[in-house]
Design a protein around this nucleic acid. Structure first.
Lengths: 205, 205
DNA sequence: GTCTATAGCTCGATAGAC
DNA sequence: GTCTATCGAGCTATAGAC
C-alpha cells in the first residue's frame, strides 16, 4: 500500500485559529490606541504579529471587524460580567460600589481596548455601531435604575438619576485615559478615591 | 481712451481670509465629529462649504493643521478663559464651582470641537501633540492645586488631589458626549446636577 | 494558514491658469 | 482666492500558489 504520509507543516507557520484571532485583536488594539484606527494599515497589524497583511483576512473579513471585536470587549463584556452585581444582596449604594470596583478592574485589564472602543466608534458600520450603542445604553440604564432605587429608599440624595448615571460612568471611563499598572490592587487605589468622591463628595459637611 | 474695466469677480467667489478660516474649522469639526478625522477627506470639507479641495490649501497648509486649530479651541481657550476664575475672590470651593460652570458653558458652545479635540489627538504631529498636551496638563494642575488648597484650609475632604482633579475633569469633559441644547441655561441644568454630585456626593449622611 | 502579487481605489498635496 | 488637472503614495481587499 502506498498511502502518502501527511506532509508536516513547519510549526512556526501554524497557529490555532482562535488564539490567532485573540492575538490579532490584542495587537490591533495596542496600535489603534497609539496611532488612531484609520492611521493604521492592515500591514501594521500584520507586522506586529509577524505575518503578511493578506493573512489577516483568513481570520477577519475586514479591518472594521477587528475594531468591532475590540468594541464588543468593552461594551458586551461589562454588561455580562458587571451588571449581575447589581442583582446581588445589599443596598443600592452597596451594589453600586461593587459595580464601580468591577468596572475599574475590568477597565484596567482591558485598558487599550477601552481607549479604542471609547473613541473610535464612528468607524463602525451602522449595524455594528447600533449594536455597540445598544450595549452602552443598556449598561447606563441599569446604573440609572439602581440610583433611582437608592433615592426612593432614602439612601441616596435626590437628583436626576439619568444625569447622575452619565456623570458616574463618564468619570469611570475617563480612568482609561491615565491609569497605570496591571494588577487589581492598582485598580483598587483608584476605586477607593473615586468611590469616596462619588458617594461622599468633595466638600466637608 | 481704452482703459479696460477691472473685471468684477463674482461676489460668491470671494471671501475674506479670516472668516474663511473660521468657516473651514467649523465645518471640519462637524464632519470630523460625525465620521472621525481620518475617514474624512479634504474634498468632504470643501464640499461642505462649497469650494474645491485645492482651495483649502490657501488657508491651511495641511489637513492636520485644521485639526490642530480645533484642538487649540478646546485646550488653549479654556486655559485662557476659565483659569482666571481660579484667581478670583472666594473660597477654593466657590472658585472651583465657578470654573465648573464656565467649563460646561464653553463646552456646550464648542461641543463639536470638544468631541474632536478629546478623541483625535493621536493624529496630530508630535510637535502639535506636545503643545496640546501641555495645555491640558496645565489646566489639570491648576484644578489640582485649588483642590489641594481647599483641603489644607479644611473646606474640602482630604483625598489625593491629583486623582480628584482627574475624576472631576473626566466627568465634565464627558458631558460633551451627550449634552443637548445651545444656551447657557441648557448648560446650567447640567452644571447644577454635576456640581451637587461633585461637592455633596450621592449618599445622604 | 500563510504566502506573493496586484487590482482598484482614494487620498493629500502641488502646479499653474484666471 | 478659487479653479482645473494631476501626481504619486498608500490603502483595503482579492486571487491563487503552496
Amino acid at each position: 500500500m502506498t498511502v502518502p504520509e501527511p506532509i508536516p507543516q513547519p510549526a512556526a507557520r501554524r497557529k490555532r485559529t482562535t488564539e490567532r484571532r485573540a492575538e490579532i485583536v490584542r495587537a490591533a488594539a495596542r496600535i489603534f490606541a497609539d496611532q488612531g484606527y484609520a492611521q493604521v494599515g492592515m500591514r501594521d497589524i500584520a507586522d506586529a504579529i509577524g505575518v503578511r497583511g493578506a493573512s489577516l483576512y483568513h481570520h477577519f473579513r475586514s479591518k472594521e471587524e477587528i475594531l468591532y471585536a475590540i468594541c464588543l470587549t468593552v461594551t458586551r463584556e461589562p454588561v455580562e460580567e458587571n451588571l449581575p452585581l447589581l442583582d446581588a444582596a445589599g443596598t443600592p449604594a452597596e451594589r453600586l460600589a461593587e459595580l464601580v470596583r468591577a468596572h475599574v478592574r475590568h477597565l484596567l485589564r482591558r485598558r487599550t481596548e477601552y481607549l479604542v472602543g471609547l473613541h473610535e466608534r464612528a468607524a463602525l458600520t451602522p449595524e455594528h455601531r447600533a449594536e455597540i450603542d445598544g450595549h452602552v445604553r443598556h449598561y447606563h440604564r441599569r446604573v440609572r435604575d439602581v440610583l433611582a432605587a437608592g433615592m426612593r429608599g432614602g439612601e441616596l440624595r435626590e437628583t436626576d438619576p439619568t444625569l447622575a448615571a452619565l456623570g458616574l460612568l463618564d468619570m469611570l471611563n475617563g480612568v482609561s485615559g491615565w491609569i497605570r499598572g496591571e494588577s487589581d490592587a492598582d485598580a483598587d487605589a483608584v476605586v477607593a478615591a473615586h468611590t469616596a468622591l462619588l458617594f461622599d463628595g468633595l466638600r466637608i459637611r
